[in-house]
Simulated scan of single mutants.
Amino acid sequence: MSELIPPHSRRKSKYAPRKAPDTRLATSAMIASLDAEGRETIAAPFGHALAELAQTRDDIVGLSADLSKYTDLHVFAHAHPDRFYQMGMAEQVMVSAAAGLAREGFTPFATTYAVFAARRAYDFICMAIAEENLPVKICCALPGLTTGYGPSHQATEDLAIMRGMPNLTVLDPCDAIDTMQATHAIADHPGPVYMRLLRGQVPNVLGEYDYQFKLGKAQMIHDGADVLFIASGFMTMRVLDAAKALARDGISCAVLHSPTIKPLDAETITREARKGGRLVVTAENHSVTGGLGEAVAATLMRAGVHVPFRQIGLPDEFLDAGALPTLHQQYGLTVDAVCASVKDWLSQ
């Protein structure tokens, strides 16, 4: 691999922006869409957004711990091979190398599975990146219950782990639109970021709502009078569908999407929760311990907002392996399960 020249010291670099490939690379055939039935999908939104971004920014580099094809970083690698680093199965080395690149003026995007970043590389992220407040973007596939491979690959506690790290911004985008827009936004953020990724054929859900990602902001997608859903990740997709189903039964639901888990948008969340008479329900693809739900609950308590409050999320346990639709039903993440829980809570 040729030596990279730091962006701030370049004149006419051979790593200057290049024209993107004319054809849009597909994702791996092994990666199925999470929830594509009846929806438009976009292939590898993270990979394509990063490749597009790198056309005009020669500080962008990509690193992967032997998983570029399974985090959609292979799209970036194809478009910008001289700015891609395959680090092998060595997550600690990858994040340490990313820290070094950041010190030299680059903006590294490092990808792996969420379990490997949160569990295996945590100390290296903390000491080499977060403590120094370096602009490394750690983008991780298989968050929460997006794989049936079992506890070795199900990152059900990654948000709890990463929320506790100072200086680290933590994101959980909903869909392809959210992911693409967030990729551009975090590239401009001066500090470190941990972002969950949906990979492969990712649904386009927020496109119909004139949505625009804003770092650190929660946004009302759909308003309602009876229930206030506060959701992140693909659970925003699920509660939007649940809100439509519940409306047919005369239950009016608001959906507040919070893709930024840290720093949480306390102002918007408390303002919406204060609007009287609504049951507040958090929904997340994460353990009920330490994620969005507990962050929202603590925010409301500190603000003196006392409302009926419930959580939809994964149990505080190691989950089973199996087919995703079966597991989502088993652990209450389906639209039907959300609707049933809300009806039960409202009847109490």
Rank of each mutant, 00 (worst) to 15 (best):
E104F: 08
A303P: 05
Y331P: 04
Y211D: 11
D226G: 00
A182K: 05
S287N: 09
V170W: 06
D344I: 00
P315K: 14
I5M: 10
D175I: 12
L168N: 07
T282F: 03
Q86L: 05
K137I: 07
N167V: 00
D241F: 01
D265Y: 02
A218C: 05
K217T: 01
Y149C: 04
P173R: 10
A130W: 10
D175G: 08
I138T: 12
A242M: 00
T111K: 07
A51W: 10
K262I: 03
E131K: 03
A79S: 06
G164K: 05
A297S: 15
S258T: 14
T111R: 09
D82W: 04
L197D: 15
I269D: 06
N133I: 11
H78V: 00
N167L: 00
E272G: 02
R302Y: 04
L314I: 14
I221S: 00
M195G: 10
G148C: 07
A110T: 13
T299F: 12
F76S: 03
V342H: 07
A321N: 13
G105I: 05
A155E: 15
V95P: 07
Q86M: 02
V193S: 06
G224V: 08
H153Y: 11
H184Q: 12
I129S: 09
T41M: 05
K214D: 09
Q86N: 11
M1N: 09
S252A: 11
P203I: 12
F109A: 01
D58Y: 03
K244R: 06
D158E: 14
V305N: 13
V338L: 03
Y149R: 12
V95M: 04
P259S: 10
T169F: 04
V95N: 04
L319A: 13
L171R: 05
L346D: 03
A36K: 13
L50P: 02
L67I: 01
A297H: 15
C174M: 13
P7S: 14
L324Q: 05
L73E: 01
K137F: 15
V288Q: 08
N133H: 11
P166Q: 11
G216W: 10
L240T: 01
L53K: 12
K137H: 15
R274A: 14
A44I: 01
T183A: 13
G38A: 04
A295E: 13
K12W: 01
S232H: 09
C253S: 12
H48I: 04
D59S: 15
T41F: 07
R57W: 08
T236R: 02
Q212R: 07
Y209G: 00
K217D: 00
P21S: 06
H78S: 02
D22K: 13
L314H: 11
L53C: 02
A243Y: 03
P45C: 04
G191H: 08
A231W: 08
A303T: 13
A187Y: 11
R11Q: 10
A298T: 12
C126V: 14
Q330R: 15
A218Q: 05
V255H: 06
V280N: 09
G293E: 15
P21G: 07
M162I: 01
E132I: 00
N285V: 11
L215G: 06
E208Q: 14
V93F: 09
Q55H: 12
A155P: 12
R196H: 15
R11G: 09
K14P: 11
Y85N: 00
V335C: 11
G322N: 08
K217L: 01
N285M: 11
L50K: 15
K69Q: 14
